[in-house]
Design a protein around this nucleic acid. Sequence first.
DNA 1: CTAATCCTTCCCACCATGGGAAGGTCAAGA
DNA 2: TCTTGACCTTCCCATGGTGGGAAGGATTAG
Lengths: 145, 145
Amino acid sequence: MNIGDAAKASGVSAKMIRYYEETGLIPPAGRTASGYRVYSSQDVHMLRFIRRARDLGFSVDGISELLGLWRDQSRQSADVKRLALAHVADLRRKIAELEDMASTLETLAHACHGNDRPDCPILSELEATNRAPERRNAASRFGKA
Amino acid sequence: MNIGDAAKASGVSAKMIRYYEETGLIPPAGRTASGYRVYSSQDVHMLRFIRRARDLGFSVDGISELLGLWRDQSRQSADVKRLALAHVADLRRKIAELEDMASTLETLAHACHGNDRPDCPILSELEATNRAPERRNAASRFGKA
DNA sequence: CTAATCCTTCCCACCATGGGAAGGTCAAGA
DNA sequence: TCTTGACCTTCCCATGGTGGGAAGGATTAG
């Protein structure tokens, strides 16, 4: 099976399959005499696994660990669970940050007349010299801790 | 005031200030004879505005619109409000996606013994051939709609 | 045989941010 | 005055996942 078929069957784009191979997430696919990558249904199985993990928001690094455990017949489910729960904690942290932003902004928007006059508490808040007093920390964006 | 001072005073890194200038989010700063960028307290005011909008999760594009309204004395607060609420809706959509992921994974993790045995429903779910039945759509990741 | 469709590799772009190198400038202290 | 250290400048590179597209070869259906 060629990469296009594997892509359709797994839900992972051909481009991403090549990328995953290049970065070592998956082992290099076999090749035909003319250089086409060849995939087995086993491979598709693995790609589908990856797709689902992505859908659950795992990073490629996380998926790499997950794949390791998946392949390891003598794994301990405790390790899998730990990985999963750590990711859940990550997600919840991000959710909390976004929720903080959303509610701050919503409060501000609620206080805004939303008419044809220029005065607007949203802009006032943004241009205020000092930190926002009411909300504890709408700050501390994603990425870096 | 040099870029370092403006950075400290505004909370926007020097690197980002240059980037914002380069991409046109902010107008080019004045320069000393020797080429150093010079900032006024007005500029710092603007940078702080940007910083806060970032803290509320606005993209640079969104901030650009916000800045336009901020500078426009004849703006209508309705426009600001619309922008803010659209962003809130964006945030809530992302939150819902993350929450979907988190709860799916949490349910799975809950069903996992987390002991020294290898069997684990988390991996089972990931390797399942068909789509997840219980959850409607843990899929459809961020970014592109 | 030809045309369409696939595959290959390679480079570029996104977004926002940081790292760092090579070199110029400025201010303070000896 | 000279040196030193802290600052500034521009330029390139990396991140993480993903897509776009070009140039050229392979395969396949008609």
